[in-house]
Amino acid sequence: MTQKPRSHPPSLKLVGTDGSDAAQAGPIIRDVDWSILMARAQDGDGAAYHRLLQDIVPYLRSLASRRHRDPNDVEDAVQDILLTIHSIRQTYDPGRPFGPWLVTIANRRFIDRLRRQGRVRARETPLTAEHETFSEARANLQESTDRHELGGAIDNLPPRQRQAIRLLKLKEMSLKEAAVASGMSITSLKVNTHRALKSLRKMLVDRSEP
């Protein structure tokens, strides 16, 4: 039982609003300030409550940053503590120091949060961006190696067949467009494509059955 001597707030005075006296007076006065604000909050004073919560947030953040690294976690933990304080604010006894009350609540929430995180980490695998890329056809590793191999095989074709297959199959032009682009006739394009496919098939099958 480590308690400071009971500091009854005899009259609920409004403490300085600019914070200048709090900065000079150190943690004990601040604790008394917080006690007074909390006592007023319990009586339903919204402004005092607002100021108290604003005052304790930097302190809670510094406590939280000792336990959590991720800034999002820190902010979550702080909000968790604020909600807990709100839901059990009737348990505070204005005759006792505010600091230990606050720190115990904060520590319990941190421990709960760390335990929950530990459980989640043990049972779940996070779905990261890496996993998501698999659903995109372009990022599919298997297909891209095929594409690489196919590119090599096309490079080995005679020039006219190569051009025909590039325009018609890879760039997916129509026969007319391909004829305009390459200067070959439609018939010659057809013939070259046919031959190219035949030799590609032969090349790729040969390669896959060594």
């Binding site: 909000q79 604020l82 909600l83 709100h86």
Partner: peptide, 9 residues
């Protein structure tokens, strides 16, 4: 959050 809690005080 603080504002909404204070409003619910």
């Amino acid at each position: 959050l603080i504002a909404s809690l204070a409003a619910n005080a």
